[in-house]
Every structure is written in structure tokens, then in C-alpha cells.
């Protein structure tokens, strides 16, 4: 069984982002970039399926600028077998990512595609569902557990009320939630080994896909700042303020 995972290069989750001065975008120059945390979880899950003997090959996919190769390298160092980069300098919306993924799926024929539930930059939470739609496949979103058997996969999903389990016909698309696993760090020997693994380069034109955006970003602004509050001495003062000043209890 082949597994395909999608890995996006995003601003590291620890970075406090800034809006650029002309209010058109978030500043990304000279900012630490990393693999989207949910995609690390996707890669880890793929590796575990390989280690369990369920998966035979794990392919890491990314679409983005040249530097996204580093993100794919990270996946390779964690344990993926090879990479595919769809190179473009344009901003790619989830629908376009899903279309490129679909083209790759049709070439590679994986039985399972694992993507993150959400990219922490655009916070879209769309790509996996869109890919499943375009392929006519089943989808298991916000997964916290996978249980594969012949031709089907049981996915435990984190939903608003708690947990839910669905049974998906394979091939399927799964999107990862935080509790699915704890991703490993790449060891030094594996980082060295990853340098020899192949990354195939292609681009949207070659795949025959129009990635032009459907949304125009008119403005990007900082959200309204909260004004600093006060420190209270003790619990009695806190309750007094909540009752008589804020009047919320």
C-alpha cells in the first residue's frame, strides 16, 4: 500500500507574526519557517504505517516556492521515502492545492492520502475535504486514531461533542488532529540519509492545473488590541471587581 502525505512550509508556530507596513500581507521575509505542525503528525502516521508493515511506500508532497524542498527534506529525514515538489511562487489556495494533489494521486495511485486538518498560516481547514471531493473518495477529518483493515479504515474523529468513529472505504483521505500521534524528531543519521533521497520537481503548468486564486486579499490588518487590565491583590478584590465594576457575575 502506498501512502501520500502533504507537507506545507509555514511560518513557525512560535513566531509572533507582523502585518507588513502597506497592510497587504503578513511579513514572511527573514522569519523562521517550519513544516506545518499538523503535517508533521501526518508524516509520523505514515511512518508508523510503514513500520507496522501496512504501508510499503511513503511519499511526501508539497506545493510552494523552491524552499519547500527543505520541508520535504524534513519529511524524508523523519522517514518518508521520496518527495514531490510542485514548484510555484504564487500564493496557492486550498482548491488549487487539492487539484495539484489530485493530479499527483492519479499518477501515483496511493491508497491513502494524509494531510493536516489545518495549515496554521491561512487557517483554512479545507484541502483534505476538497481533495476527497475531487477524487470522489471518502474522508476522515480531524483524526485522532486510524485503524486499517482490508479495504477499509476506521477513523476516530475529534468532533465538537467528543469523539466519533467512521468506517471509510479505501482509498481515502484523512486529515490529522493533534492527538493522532506525537511526531518524532529526525535523528542525525537519518538527516544525512535523507540527503540521498529523491525529490521530483514539477509545476502546475506541467500538471495542467490552473492555480490562479479565486479570492483577492484586499487588506490585512492587525486585530484590535485589548487594553491592559489591572492586577488584583486577592480573591476578595477579584470577586468585588467582577460584581461591581465589570458586572459580569
Amino acid at each position: 500500500m502506498k501512502v501520500l502525505v502533504a507537507v506545507k512550509r509555514v511560518v513557525d508556530y512560535n513566531v509572533k507574526i507582523r502585518v507588513n507596513s502597506d497592510q497587504t500581507a503578513v511579513e514572511t521575509a527573514n522569519v523562521k519557517m517550519s513544516m506545518n505542525p499538523f503535517d508533521e503528525i501526518a508524516v509520523e502516521e505514515g511512518i508508523r504505517l510503514k513500520e507496522a508493515g501496512t504501508a510499503s511506500e511513503l511519499i511526501a508532497f508539497s506545493i510552494g516556492p523552491k524552499q519547500s524542498q527543505e520541508t520535504i527534506r524534513t519529511a524524508l529525514a523523519m522517514g518518508a521515502d521520496r518527495g514531490i515538489l510542485v514548484e510555484t511562487d504564487t500564493m496557492v489556495e486550498p482548491l488549487a492545492v487539492a487539484k495539484c494533489l489530485k493530479a499527483v494521486v492519479e499518477k501515483e495511485n496511493p491508497d491513502l492520502v494524509i494531510v493536516g486538518k489545518q495549515a496554521i498560516d491561512d487557517d483554512s481547514n479545507q484541502t483534505g475535504q476538497m481533495l476527497a471531493a475531487l477524487l470522489g473518495w471518502s474522508q476522515g477529518t480531524f483524526a485522532s486514531n486510524l485503524d486499517l483493515s482490508d479495504g477499509s479504515i476506521k477513523v476516530t474523529r475529534e468532533v465538537d461533542g467528543g469523539l466519533e468513529t467512521v468506517d471509510l472505504k479505501m482509498p481515502a483521505v484523512v486529515t490529522t488532529d493533534l492527538r493522532l500521534n506525537e511526531p518524532r524528531y529526525a535523528s542525525l543519521p537519518n538527516i544525512m540519509k535523507a540527503k540521498k533521497k529523491t525529490i521530483d520537481l514539477t509545476n502546475p503548468e506541467e500538471l495542467g492545473i490552473d492555480i490562479s486564486p479565486r479570492l483577492t486579499v484586499l487588506k490585512v490588518e492587525e486585530p484590535a488590541k485589548r487594553i491592559a487590565g489591572v492586577m488584583v491583590e486577592d480573591v476578595a478584590q477579584l470577586v468585588d471587581k467582577l460584581r461591581n465594576e465589570a458586572k459580569v457575575i
Binding site: 486550498p94 487557517d123 481547514n125 475535504q129 476538497m130 471531493a133 468532533v159 479570492l215
Partner: peptide
């Protein structure tokens, strides 16, 4: 934008070949 809505709507958008505007 609940887990229910987030699960379904991108699938609708892709079938219609349109973007989704999230949250």
C-alpha cells in the same frame, strides 16, 4: 464553522469548483 460545517463545506465548494471562505 463547527466540526460539522468544516467537514462538509469544503467538499461542497470543491464539487462546485469554487473557493471556500473559512470562518
Amino acid at each position: 464553522a463547527t466540526t460539522h460545517g468544516k467537514n462538509i463545506m469544503p467538499r461542497v465548494a470543491a464539487l462546485l469548483d469554487v473557493a471556500q471562505i473559512s470562518e
